[in-house]
């Protein structure tokens, strides 16, 4: 395989397809389970108010679960974005649109990864700040 193609995200290249496949499916199941957990709290507490909601989210258990789930959301999203990048931001695909764009495909793809990588870090930082501080 062309090592330049995804050298920036080598980890995905050397991982087995089945591992990435499983990761994406299991992370989606974790996200679904978390949502069910949150909704079950809402539906099981008819007289829900600010204090019960606040107590629920300030418990260590929910804080810990939320942290795990948001990490998992970023991982899940990143696999999807990596797939989109390697599909649509390649020399070949951009070449369908424009030759000069095609020549810059690798750079554009790295910028795309960098932007979403930074967004992921910012998102997690904000989430952890909200959850723990």
């Amino acid at each position: 395989m062309d090592s330049n193609f995804t050298s920036f995200f080598w980890i995905f290249v050397y991982m087995k397809g089945s591992f990435i496949w499983y990761t994406q499916r299991y992370t989606s199941l974790i996200i679904l389970s978390y949502l069910i957990y949150i909704f079950s709290f809402i539906f099981n507490n008819q007289d829900i108010n600010f204090f019960s909601w606040s107590d629920f989210f300030l418990s260590f258990q929910v804080r810990f679960l939320s942290s795990i789930v948001f990490l998992v959301i970023v991982l899940h999203a990143f696999i999807g974005l990596w797939t989109v990048g390697t599909d649509y931001l390649t020399k070949r695909t951009l070449g369908f649109l424009n030759v000069s764009l095609s020549r810059r495909a690798d750079t554009l793809r790295y910028i795309y990864y960098l932007i979403f990588g930074l967004l992921g870090i910012m998102y997690l930082t904000a989430i952890f700040y909200i959850i723990w501080l």
């Binding site: 395989m1 087995k16 397809g17």
Partner: peptide, 10 residues
């Protein structure tokens, strides 16, 4: 030979 992320999993 088919286990990489592209050959089958695309």
């Amino acid at each position: 030979a088919l286990s990489d992320p592209f050959s089958v999993y695309r």
